[in-house]
Design a binder for these strands. Sequence first.
DNA 1: CCTGTCTCGATACGGTGTACGAGCAGGAAC
DNA 2: GTTCCTGCTCGTACACCGTATCGAGACAGG
Lengths: 299, 299
Amino acid sequence: MPGQSAQGELPSDRVVAALRARIVDGGLAPGDRVPSTRALAVEHGVALSTAARALTLLRDAGWVRTVPRVGSVVADPRGGEPVRPRRGGTPTREDVAAVAVELADVDGLVTLSMRRVAAAFGVPTMSLYRIVRGKDDLVVGMIDTVFASAALPAGTGPARARLEALARRQWRLHRRHPWLARALSLSRPQASPALLRFAEAELAALEAVVDDPITRFDLHIAITSFVRGMAVELAAELDAEADTGIDADTWAGQDTTLHEHLRRHGGPALRRVGDYPFDLQRIFDTGLRALLDGVTISS
Amino acid sequence: MPGQSAQGELPSDRVVAALRARIVDGGLAPGDRVPSTRALAVEHGVALSTAARALTLLRDAGWVRTVPRVGSVVADPRGGEPVRPRRGGTPTREDVAAVAVELADVDGLVTLSMRRVAAAFGVPTMSLYRIVRGKDDLVVGMIDTVFASAALPAGTGPARARLEALARRQWRLHRRHPWLARALSLSRPQASPALLRFAEAELAALEAVVDDPITRFDLHIAITSFVRGMAVELAAELDAEADTGIDADTWAGQDTTLHEHLRRHGGPALRRVGDYPFDLQRIFDTGLRALLDGVTISS
DNA sequence: CCTGTCTCGATACGGTGTACGAGCAGGAAC
DNA sequence: GTTCCTGCTCGTACACCGTATCGAGACAGG
């Protein structure tokens, strides 16, 4: 589908790529004027707004800079930061992400649509697309927002305690934002500064425990995966609870069939567990302890 | 959206619940005729097809049985199995799930739509809804199909080896069906016979290692979560690879910005890792070893 | 004032899941 | 033999999604 949001196939990206190519070739030197919106439009056979979008993207990436009343000019590669998002009344990426996070916290990720975010923001739907590249990008921004909101635990003390604190911190984030697990599983791994800070802290703690740098990084990913896997379970649990509240009867019906299934297909080991108090916090604690035991044992 | 497919709120469920209530009350005894489709439709103010669907659901659940040319009749509770899905030319739930699995294996879960499944099956779209309850139900069926296709490793030998084999088997399933992780994270935990078989085997192996039944079940969930968390990573990796193939240029561009991000936001510990060969199989092995070390250590 | 440039927002497109109800084949009853 | 009435089939329609496109307006320079 066209709404698949497979980033990289959009017409504006083709224009961006072409211009970037001309810049790195030297065909366009720093200071040179880049073709105007209209020129780009006829040159590439696209709509004006598409060309305008391409220019915006180039500017946000730091390739060109906009000189008011003149046009866009190739930026100096040494020219410092990739242009701060223009301040002023216009909402920033962070603002939009923050609003979307609030919305998702209340209603979940499924009902989060661009239209709804825009409405909550008080702007027309399509105006969002000047601030974020699309829904995927918005979700990445939300993830970044959430992880940026979490303070890192102290980087001192015993390594084991630091690792535990870091995992717990992430787990708390998932408790607060149940959509997070689903969002992480849906999005590609993006380079999010806030996520990198967590990775950095965890790797630093692991240095005291694991010598081999590759194994160290492996274990970092393994721990993260464990936390996220548990978070997925948590999200599912919360969903189920929400459903129970709405429709207790149906749930009860499913419950009986669940028990029936368990009786029919579950073997002796499953039955031997008996009455099991399902408490994800305890499960998380137990699992994390085991995992960290295993990590520290190899030192 | 109305297609949110929150199971349990459908009008047909209300009808089902009402009829079930009348049956358990004794208002409708075994052998009694249940109201006809049309009668149900006017009684509950729903469409004919909704009423028909309700009857189908009741029959599949074994509450009633259809006497051709007469109507539906309350089934004898002792009457054995909940009615085999009628054999013959009509495709069964398993058939549909199998086709959907093939489709998802090739094209991924995102492009899997009811229309596409129906087309691949050669039936009209809406005919699927007589076989599965909706897309969520179809996905659950797909999960069940996949797990049912996997043979369980031998239930003998050292517990540690059995646990490892079980985790590996699940991991292999995720390698073969990259959509599986996403499907599991999206769906509620359903009582799937095939999944229960895995749980049973894992619990049996854990019995030799963990005495406390609650801790044992906790660790079972923890191990499963770890595997699934790693599988999510795997799915993301495969997605990224697919994108690279299609659009190497864009990916290269993202790569530079990724490295830039890493340089800017990554701390010393991240840099000290140096060149890291990203290989999820090795990461999985390392992580699993650590986790199982931690599990067996507490014995 | 004109004119080239940028900004904005409505509209439209192609997709989704699924509720709905008109039409159908065929045995039962008259 | 006709007329009901059954359950079944499936084409249509709805509400919603993400987002590309484009026309109309804002604004500064000449």
